[in-house]
Nucleic acid binder design. Sequence first.
DNA 1: AGCGAGACTGCAAACGTTTACAGCAAGTGC
DNA 2: GCACTTGCTGTAAACGTTTGCAGTCTCGCT
Lengths: 353, 353
Amino acid sequence: MARVTIVQVAERAGVSTASASRALNGLIASAETVEKVMQAARELGYVADATAQSLKRGKTLQLGYAVADIGNPVYVEIMSAIERVVQASGYRLIISSTGTASSSVDVVRDLSRGLVDGMILSPLRVTDDLIAALEAAPIPFVVLGRVPDSAGFDAVRADSSTAMRLVVEHLAAEGRRSLAFLNGPADTTPGALRLEGFRAAVAMHADVRSRLAEAADFTITAGYEAAMPLLTAADRPDAIVAANDLIGLGVLRAAEDLGLSVPSDVAVTGIDDTELAAVVRPGLTSVDLGADARGAAAAEMLLARIADPSRPAHVLTVTPSLVVRGSTVPQRPVALGSAALATPTDEEERTAG
Amino acid sequence: MARVTIVQVAERAGVSTASASRALNGLIASAETVEKVMQAARELGYVADATAQSLKRGKTLQLGYAVADIGNPVYVEIMSAIERVVQASGYRLIISSTGTASSSVDVVRDLSRGLVDGMILSPLRVTDDLIAALEAAPIPFVVLGRVPDSAGFDAVRADSSTAMRLVVEHLAAEGRRSLAFLNGPADTTPGALRLEGFRAAVAMHADVRSRLAEAADFTITAGYEAAMPLLTAADRPDAIVAANDLIGLGVLRAAEDLGLSVPSDVAVTGIDDTELAAVVRPGLTSVDLGADARGAAAAEMLLARIADPSRPAHVLTVTPSLVVRGSTVPQRPVALGSAALATPTDEEERTAG
DNA sequence: AGCGAGACTGCAAACGTTTACAGCAAGTGC
DNA sequence: GCACTTGCTGTAAACGTTTGCAGTCTCGCT
């Protein structure tokens, strides 16, 4: 556990620390020196101290991903995509989870203190404090989600309005006339955007009635609890549009516990098209917001900005697509084959936005 | 984006960098100095450089969690527990995901280069390389899982043999006589231990036949694929014991696609008792290995070791408990209430090991 | 033989902090 | 009025690296 430094290596090898450093980093040095230094390093178990190294070099070769709600599988999917891209470029990714809004500001501040060379963040709430922290940050970052245009940040977005339009059109086409939107907290960015998208989408269908409800959280349990009053109301809606898959799953469970049949009594949809939506029965119709594509794009954007800090800000919007499953359309018997779990087959029709 | 250092703050405040540092860190300094320094810092937007700080102080106030398979919800649960404990002690947690075995060694090596003051790891495979890397690491760490006793590491373990005993006894008590164990890769630590536990458990029941199978991975898809041949075999088992919940879910889907009814045609069990097991229908009987408790214990153990590096190595084993759901015992109609999703109610009987 | 180029080396100065030490002024007790 | 403490300050040395610079040595060329 004792720290061994480069001076000990240099001493043992009988050279200066400068030569040792050069030998270790593959810079110009004689074969003999390299040999001696490498052996000394091996014998002593030397590993360069990262803090000293990055202090001197001014780079850490690390990138950060700050994610608000790691319990939601869609963020895990995004994270995996980011990691794939980042690793390929020789950077390491570190994840920081930010529960509350204030801690999200803290994370930005802390990580930008020199721990990482850049960061990606998926904020649940974009507060003025957060914007201020981002503007003051000495490192580049990419926001996954909506951020005021004026800010001029690099960003990757999902297209919530198209997503909601896909869902509403699908339900209307299936003959549903009374829709309830079960949102997550409306003061979050996804909550606000999906609500807006839903309103715009139903406005285009004069024959469709709609109402709004809100779950305490983007979780299964919160979805379950918020669904109960909707499903037991005298004028029960014939379709519930959930703001994400977890809430949608809660709705499915609530319907089951009430003895309602899905989709005949009530149709249910989710958003994010997580693996959960495919695994549960009935399968949950959902909108794929392109988590993988968004994660990868954000990572590439960040790397591009690090390479060229003066490039103009980019904003990329990823197109969503609808994945229809048994929670909105009565299910045919399923074809045999594991592909049904991973990719849409004939039982799952996919509609691009 | 320009970096502002403490010398600029000191200059602007008209004091030495030493005084500035003292003022910023709340050490002894006159009220007037503090005022001037704070104002200068605010105006310039100064934030101390973390690498320089930790280089000088010899601590980073960061801990690391290296996790092999972030796609598995049980690790997310562990992570949340770790984070809860770690945050309360003023440390920050950074997550590093380690896909392959070799990258797991890399992560240990890299993080212990001075980026974190200690780390917790959940390795999927414990190779000699990994042991060597851990022994050479200059920082303390805690292993979540089995590690050779000789190594003398701090560790927190699940009790796989009790877990498997609980499952097998439950199935035997329900009248199942032909069990198949559907393992994940047997060359992983959990795979090896659960296999061993299963063997020991069935050895205690002379009237129960058993067979073994292996999924390519601890995932739903791999479980689905590996379950197919088992379920279509002429001598189909009357119960499938899956090595974790994800594999178990794959089994449920395979059974469904084959038109088999669970639990009457075949019973299914999982391990880990993730939220998924409670949400799917039929609910998946599973063993709670105490993810939350293990994560919290590991974090506390790490903090204790950092506080006192000379304390003897601790190994803690957490006791598992069985959670019975519809995949093994025909389900009664469910009581109303959201609690059914989160905690076991009368429909879910819990048996401690 | 002389000379420049090239390969390699060591010295020492950084990177941005914190902190041991010494210095200084003002206050206290005699 | 002296010695001592107390409270604060600045100088400078660290922490472990990398790197500009200048120097040495060897070699090949003319």
